[in-house]
Design a protein around this nucleic acid. Structure first.
Length: 375
DNA sequence: GCCATTTGACCAAA
DNA sequence: TTTGGTCAAATGGC
């Protein structure tokens, strides 16, 4: 029991260290001018690398059976211990970025200037002249965007996987009458929830049991088993946003995900390191980014991450005072499984449970580690 | 030739 | 009868 308390305390301290590092990194990236000189880039890379150590150490502490394999707050066990130990499944993902929105339920209407950017692949199955409409719909197919104006038409789309997977999701697009000018607005009506993502496989980290056929995730991204990753398109802004959100959620709360901080400039690109986990092979040579890891998280998990209210760390601020053990309430004592009351772990404000268990943390690490590994 | 898109026809509901 | 939603043959690009 005393050993467990010590381990929790070390984990607490380790995460606090990560919290301070993230604040440091934010301060660096928030400098006026939004441009880092070479020294600033080196600092950012160094902080990122240290953050990866925080991830590694924390994960190993969370990994059952590895709790004692920590030396001076840093883990010594090889990554393979994680790969073969607590992690039996993971969802590899490469997202080069197209805006992805959550699956829709029932009928939902939306006015948008970009009706085509929802991450799903659609097949047009018809169009119809509509009365009392001055404009026609935009025509969109997948990530190819072609806006054509004709008159009085509504376009009908169904999910590209409607047949092979029985996905009943549909979409209607119609340009709004009042959308004269720039940009045009489209009324997008979504019908039925996507069910095509349900076939997304849980894939062993070694790619040993990759499915033989392409699969689409719940976010509509195509999963390519041959390459072992997801592909959604190309949108660096989204990647930055999710990276920031994921980063902040894991390390220091959800502050960085706040809209007011969205203009934070992207950090210098960190090349994936060949020295990453040995068996971490996506099969295609591309390394996943933090966006990848966020996309491979289950949507519910992401919701819980975003809305979980249980983070002990205050939101990261650029000029925040360093975190210390004394500045926060002490970690909870380890509990016997039989004495755990699930209700006691429900966050007070939102009713979502915090489900960042060891598995989740390990997945986060595995798919983000190339970003933080030394060059 | 294959595949995605287009478009007229068909059908059901109001 | 009108309107909205869907089907399926025709068309075009690769």
């Amino acid at each position: 029991m005393a050993f467990q308390q010590e381990a929790v305390g070390k984990l607490w301290e380790e995460l606090g260290h990560g919290y301070n590092l993230s604040a440091k990194l934010l301060a660096l990236l928030s400098q006026p001018g939004h441009l880092l000189d070479s020294h600033g880039q080196e600092m950012a890379v160094a902080i990122s690398q240290e953050l990866s150590q925080v991830f590694r150490a924390s994960l190993l502490m969370l990994n059952p059976g590895n709790s004692g394999r920590v030396v001076e707050g840093r883990a010594t066990a090889p990554e393979a211990a994680i790969m073969e130990g607590s992690i039996s499944q993971a969802t590899p993902a490469i997202i080069s970025g197209e805006e992805v929105t959550p699956p829709r339920i029932g009928k939902e209407e939306e006015i948008t200037a970009e009706p085509y950017k929802d991450g799903y692949k659609w097949k047009k199955y018809g169009q119809k002249n509509i009365k009392n409409r001055k404009f026609a719909s935009g025509i969109f197919v997948s990530d190819l965007t072609v806006n054509k104006l004709s008159t009085n038409k509504r376009l009908y789309f169904r999910c590209m996987h409607s047949h092979e997977r029985g996905c009943r999701a549909k979409k209607q697009v119609q340009q709004q009458d009042n959308s004269i000018g720039n940009p045009p607005l489209y009324k997008v009506t979504c019908l039925n929830e996507h069910t095509c993502h349900q076939a997304f496989p849980n894939v062993n980290i070694t790619n040993a049991n990759l499915a033989a056929t392409s699969t689409t995730t719940r976010n509509g991204a195509d999963y390519d088993p041959a390459r072992g990753h997801l592909h959604v398109g190309g949108n660096g802004e989204l990647e930055d946003r999710i990276m920031t959100s994921t980063f902040s959620t894991v390390i220091g709360g959800a502050a960085l995900a706040a809209p007011s901080l969205s203009p934070v400039p992207s950090p210098p690109p960190v090349e994936a390191s060949p020295s990453g986990p040995a068996s971490y092979d996506t099969g295609g040579g591309q390394s996943p980014s933090l966006l990848d890891l966020s996309m491979c998280l289950d949507e519910t998990m992401m919701d819980e991450m975003y809305f979980s209210c249980g983070s002990p760390f205050p939101p990261v601020e650029a000029n925040a005072a360093p975190w210390s053990l004394s500045s926060l309430p002490p970690p909870p004592p380890p509990m016997e499984a039989s004495s755990i009351d699930p209700a006691a772990y429900m966050p007070p404000r939102c009713g979502h449970s915090l489900s960042l268990d060891a598995m989740t943390m390990a997945e986060i690490f595995l798919w983000s580690s190339p970003l933080f590994s030394p060059r």
